[in-house]
Design a protein around this nucleic acid. Sequence first.
DNA 1: CATATTGGTAACAACAGAGTTACCTTTCTC
DNA 2: GAGAAAGGTAACTCTGTTGTTACCAATATG
Lengths: 118, 118
Amino acid sequence: MDVFSAIADPLRRELLTRLAAGPARVVDLAAEHPVSRPAVSRHLRMLTEAGLVVADDVGRERHYRLLPEPLVEVRAFAASLERRPPIPESALDALDTEVRRTSRERRLAAPTHTEESA
Amino acid sequence: MDVFSAIADPLRRELLTRLAAGPARVVDLAAEHPVSRPAVSRHLRMLTEAGLVVADDVGRERHYRLLPEPLVEVRAFAASLERRPPIPESALDALDTEVRRTSRERRLAAPTHTEESA
DNA sequence: CATATTGGTAACAACAGAGTTACCTTTCTC
DNA sequence: GAGAAAGGTAACTCTGTTGTTACCAATATG
């Protein structure tokens, strides 16, 4: 389970937010959210696989704790798309022209459309 | 389609990254990625629903363009979990104690476990 | 030691997501 | 105007995810 899929589920995001306030057990999380205990257990397993959560065994209890490191990948992705200045009209025009030129060349030159790399 | 689900798919992330380099058409994106054109078309519809992409109609062509605004929600979520100082051992102990105390109180006081709010 | 509590997992049903091919409409181009 | 190009959608299949209940193992507790 990758980080992006891990945080795609709303309940898992709630669980992470809850764990940000401090460790908790499966029964606690299940009591605080409208899902069964096995459901919480499996969500926690996924979060563990994503490296977002770790469990400290304390006797028969298991204290789940947030591990925010993997979120840097998410932030990096978002940042890479966000930090991009608003494209001026002139640049848009240029890109538009580029698209048209490229497509014409492709139509004239390429017999197959399954070239291996882009 | 919410933003978190939108960026959960690897291909959609690639499409967004590609669109960050400039607008593109469906045929272009389909040629650059190992999926059929209808698949790309539907991914773009989802990205549009998420507000991550917008289409400029140019004749029979449709130029898709990145719209990074919705990503602030993603960054905000990640940041809210990340900006949390490493928890010192003492605090962990305190929280641990808290969990134990709360669970004991709950066991002693609560007859049913299906109270409506937490 | 008997019992309750915690929690993981299996088995199942229901649903959503992602891919494909086939088909249709719209718009260029000759 | 005929044909090619672009693109959206429908229909279908497949797979993964999410939820549930039932069951089992391990550990506290009286």
